[in-house]
Design a protein around this nucleic acid. Sequence first.
DNA 1: TGATATTATGACACCGGTGTCAGATTGGGA
DNA 2: TCCCAATCTGACACCGGTGTCATAATATCA
Lengths: 337, 337
Amino acid sequence: MKKVTINSVASYAGVSKKTVSRVLNNEPNVSDATREKVLKVFKELDYTPNPIARGLAQNRSFIIGCLYDNPSKSYITRVQTGALAACHELNYNLLIHPCELRGEELISNIEQLIQTSRLDGIVLTPPFSDFPELVSFLKSKKIPYARVASAVLEDDSISVRSNDEQGAFEITEHLIKLGHKEIAFIKGHPDHSATEQRFKGYRRALASNGIEFDERLVEEGNFSYHSGVDSARTILDLNPRPTAVFASNDYMAAAVLKLATQMQLRVPDDISIAGFDNAPIARHIWPGLTTIAQPVEEMTQQAVKQLITHIGDPQESPYQVTLEAKLITRESTAAIK
Amino acid sequence: MKKVTINSVASYAGVSKKTVSRVLNNEPNVSDATREKVLKVFKELDYTPNPIARGLAQNRSFIIGCLYDNPSKSYITRVQTGALAACHELNYNLLIHPCELRGEELISNIEQLIQTSRLDGIVLTPPFSDFPELVSFLKSKKIPYARVASAVLEDDSISVRSNDEQGAFEITEHLIKLGHKEIAFIKGHPDHSATEQRFKGYRRALASNGIEFDERLVEEGNFSYHSGVDSARTILDLNPRPTAVFASNDYMAAAVLKLATQMQLRVPDDISIAGFDNAPIARHIWPGLTTIAQPVEEMTQQAVKQLITHIGDPQESPYQVTLEAKLITRESTAAIK
DNA sequence: TGATATTATGACACCGGTGTCAGATTGGGA
DNA sequence: TCCCAATCTGACACCGGTGTCATAATATCA
């Protein structure tokens, strides 16, 4: 199996390699006859251009970096799926880079990543999407970036999100419509902007239904299953016990469910439980969790597509979209008895 | 911020770029004085060699591809974690490539991946690790590869595994020691070699404890939660009902637990349940699942390290390791009453 | 038909490294 | 002190593409 390079194609087709390059890149100023001749040789020789050589010549790597620091494996894989779909479509590669938001030297870690791997752009997923130090660092270094699920929509950056506040509003209202008035809330990790958004939605639903907000019903979690257990312990020991619990994600909701079950409480008869994210666990436990589904793959795919487009054509103005989140009702919530 | 290339370093240090290259690659035949002088300039100019240029010159990409087709997100992220650790250490990049084993044109899909991304090597994770068509294709194309968690140890390939058969043996014996004699078994996906291994371990434990194997207690699953539900339905309806169920992975075990709970069975009082893999769900449900923990990150890391070493020095003989799996007992199994 | 505008094509340098090989320098032994 | 081997070093081509620019071919118009 001999190597097929642009030179072999050129000599085989009887044209210069520059012309071959033109055909490769769909450049104008190639006659139809020549173009077809070259395309035929591509097929005959089964030619695939070498992205490394191309990268060297154009000073690009065709690699997008994807940053995440997220306890949810399913969220991560969904992000990856969306990012890969976009990369695949546009002939880019994806470099995944898990790292810690609060780890030491985050910025220099990222800087080194960019230096050594020569990334063409970066996708920021929560909690990085709204981390000001990182965003302004990328901006100052003029590294193209896109933000997934960020709360703040800046004017000048690519950002694709779904409406966390609205989702939280809807699920809270769902509980209220079922007759619940004492609805406990477990917050997420303070570094994630979604935490604040979901809390806002919860409060707005209470307010718009004339239910007074009760601070004692709010617990601080951090999105981890473990933090859910701690919060659940406090909430379930309250007297009177709330009739419903809305946890900011499904892992914490699963923890509430576990503890409730251990305490011989029947869900949803004795207490309703709602989560957020529609993680696999939401349907792997019994009863299944009522939750909010976000289009994570779709968000990431759009963000990466925009990012790559922007890299290829920087004056293209960045765009910002908000996608819909959707209420999914399962067995863990029911009308109050 | 000006670009720092090997040329800038060379002229700044007053040597030829070839000498700089020698220092970069730790080649011999550079005097200590020269070497230090160049190293100092590296620091001063904050020079990072361009992997793309290096790749072009050496006809390498410094990219390892990681193939997977696995329903378990946690398994995937663990694989990625291990692979990334190895890549990071050896200055390689990781290209993740989810794809379907039984998808159409798998081979040509992989071939295209290798062609277009110029992978230097491939890590195969289950179920690819033991997929003969793919392995022999890679061998014929002389693409270096390493296999993670494969059942078959060929002589001439890198392979790191853990002992599935032994793990299944131990967990079955654990149930037997608790007094169980009717132990149902749910098989995994037939494409995964682990499926056969775990079944073997189950049967060996029965045999070595003088318990007759009963075919009616065996159900065909496919590692998915959903298949677990189906298998559980059949098993739990058996009369007499088995006193324990050993599912080939934790998702299926969780499904058994869910159905048992729905049927008002108490776990472990009425029935014991065991899983395999120690997936997060094993401790996210109540009662927590007794299961087998495998060193997935460690396996993958070792495999990738070996692979990269082999790429750099092909006559280095490939090595094969089997790591230990470990029994983890939680609340889902108990002595028979 | 000739002059000019437009399109098509190729020669050549270049991207930032590495491989080859020749020549310069150093060191050790006679 | 001289010679030869061992050690250093650099010139130059090359990896496989792309950018620039000059020139060749063709089209347009008067």
